[in-house]
């Protein structure tokens, strides 16, 4: 018996209480003790192995990479001998000053707001597990679903830079090169995606 929101409820039947293992690839249910899914051949485990430790590692790496990503130039445009580097925020300001509010907003959301939001959510989820906040698990799961859906949209700016680099190739007249921020931003986004893949939301409900 446990209390959620002051209501006493019957204990739910879970895979741990019943000694079952779910294959995360094909969603077949197995009994405890199997190491490989009989149906699809994937490795199976009750909870993702060392989920919390790996999530911490990737999320800290992502946070560290986000700092140079915002301070250094994302791309350097050379036109008639003069170099012009621009950071992510300068790119947003460029669109806003040219009255392209829609695109400016998209880039701001995709490359500044979303990465920061995603990292804070992952930290929050880890704290829910560490502090055994069972009543926060439902909210945590909603946030987890949200960052799962928006995760890939942070790659937008990277693709834009890469596309522009490959399309503008005038020898001598104008070139576009990727700046130091591009690689660190890329690393931050990829590490955040891996961190969410490694996190097992069921751990929040186990406490």
């Amino acid at each position: 018996m446990r209390k959620i929101y002051g209501i006493t409820m019957m204990k739910w039947k879970t895979d741990i209480s019943e000694g079952r293992v779910l294959c995360l690839s094909c969603e077949e249910l197995h009994s405890l003790g199997d190491n490989e899914c009989q149906r699809c051949g994937a490795e199976i485990y009750q909870r993702k192995p060392s989920s919390i430790a790996q999530t911490w590692g990737y999320v800290i790496a992502a946070t560290l990479f986000l700092i140079p990503a915002n301070l250094m130039p994302m791309m350097v445009v050379t036109s008639l001998g003069s170099d012009e580097g621009s950071t992510i925020m300068e790119g947003v300001i460029y669109f806003l000053s040219h009255k392209d509010y829609g695109l400016g907003l998209i880039i701001f959301i995709a490359s500044v707001a979303v990465p920061v939001f995603k990292l804070s959510v992952v930290y929050y989820l880890l704290l829910i597990v560490h502090l055994k906040q069972r009543e926060k698990a439902l909210l945590g799961l909603k946030l987890f679903h949200i960052i799962h859906i928006i995760g890939k949209w942070s790659m937008l700016d990277i693709f834009v830079v890469a596309l522009m680099v490959s399309m503008v190739q005038f020898q001598g007249l104008a070139t576009i090169q990727t700046g130091a921020a591009a690689i660190s931003f890329c690393a931050a986004v990829i590490f955040t995606i891996i961190a969410t893949e490694k996190f097992d939301p069921r751990l929040m409900f186990d406490n």
Binding site: T14, D15, E18, L22, E27, L29, L141, P201, R202, M204
Partner: peptide
């Protein structure tokens, strides 16, 4: 079993 909370 639920992928997100482990319910059977």
């Amino acid at each position: 079993s639920c992928k997100d909370c482990g319910l059977i």
